[in-house]
Amino acid sequence: MDGRKFLSLFIICSAQDFCEGCDWIQRGFRLVGGESLSLLSDMGGDITDDKVPVPFPKTLYRSIRNAEMDDKVKSLHEAIDQIIELFHGNLDAVTWNMEKVEHFLTLLHRQSRELEKCVSSASKYERRLDGYFRKLKNVLKQRKYDAHSWELIRKEVKRHLQRLDLISAAMKTPAN
């Protein structure tokens, strides 16, 4: 590639903050996300109907869905990283299939790595996402990481993964 073509590509990519590996969102994110959702459901049987003590951030996800492409990608990345961090808590009380839990986490780590290629900085929604997930972590700590609190977390993570899937489905990659 000659210098002018490279410079043009660099300028286009910089202006869009969305290039190269980011087309993975359309090719791979939803596929891996679907498998993650399936594993989340399968690893522990039926998901509880009990109410989660932390309200789901519907308005935050509405804002992210209507955000610029760059903030959408950054928010996908941040939410996946927050979910990964949640699952690094004490899992001793759960009766889940740990092989499926490990596979689930491996898929989340893959999504995070691929999205990281598209992200240059944090989104404007980072603090709100962080605050929400901190509240979920507090639920686990307050309940001493008991099996029921983990089931509530699993339920909530499923809702997040479903929202992330909807956001990624609505994203369009730039024309090649």
Rank of each mutant, 00 (worst) to 15 (best):
M1Y: 14
D2H: 06
F6E: 14
L7W: 14
L7C: 11
S8D: 15
L9D: 13
L9V: 09
F10R: 14
I12P: 01
C13I: 11
C13T: 11
S14H: 10
S14E: 12
A15T: 08
D17N: 14
D17I: 05
F18L: 13
C19P: 11
E20C: 13
G21A: 14
G21H: 05
C22K: 00
I25D: 00
I25E: 06
Q26M: 10
R27K: 15
G28W: 00
R30L: 15
L31P: 08
V32C: 02
G33A: 04
G33R: 03
G33T: 02
G34H: 02
G34W: 01
L37K: 14
S38R: 15
L39T: 02
S41N: 12
D42R: 07
D42Y: 00
M43W: 03
D46E: 13
T48E: 00
D49Q: 13
D49Y: 06
D50V: 03
D50H: 08
P53Q: 08
V54F: 10
P55E: 11
P55D: 14
P55K: 07
F56V: 04
F56Q: 09
P57C: 08
P57Y: 07
K58S: 15
K58D: 15
K58Y: 11
K58I: 09
L60P: 05
Y61R: 02
S63L: 09
I64S: 09
N66I: 08
A67I: 06
A67L: 00
E68D: 15
E68P: 08
D70L: 09
K72V: 00
K72G: 03
K74E: 14
K74F: 00
K74R: 13
L76I: 03
L76K: 06
A79Y: 02
A79L: 04
G89M: 08
G89F: 07
A93Y: 02
A93Q: 12
V94S: 02
V94I: 15
M98R: 15
E99W: 10
V101T: 13
E102L: 15
T106Q: 11
T106F: 07
L108A: 00
H109W: 06
H109A: 07
H109R: 11
H109V: 04
R110T: 05
R110M: 07
R110C: 02
Q111L: 10
S112C: 05
L115K: 01
K117T: 10
K117G: 03
C118Q: 02
V119C: 06
S120L: 12
A122P: 00
S123R: 05
Y125R: 04
E126W: 08
R127H: 10
L129G: 08
D130F: 13
Y132N: 07
Y132H: 15
F133G: 00
R134Q: 10
K135A: 06
N138H: 11
N138A: 12
K141G: 09
D146M: 08
H148I: 02
W150C: 00
W150L: 01
I153Y: 01
R154D: 05
K158A: 12
H160Q: 07
L161P: 02
L161G: 01
L164Y: 05
L164M: 10
D165Q: 12
I167L: 09
S168L: 04
S168W: 03
S168R: 01
M171A: 09
K172S: 15
T173Q: 10
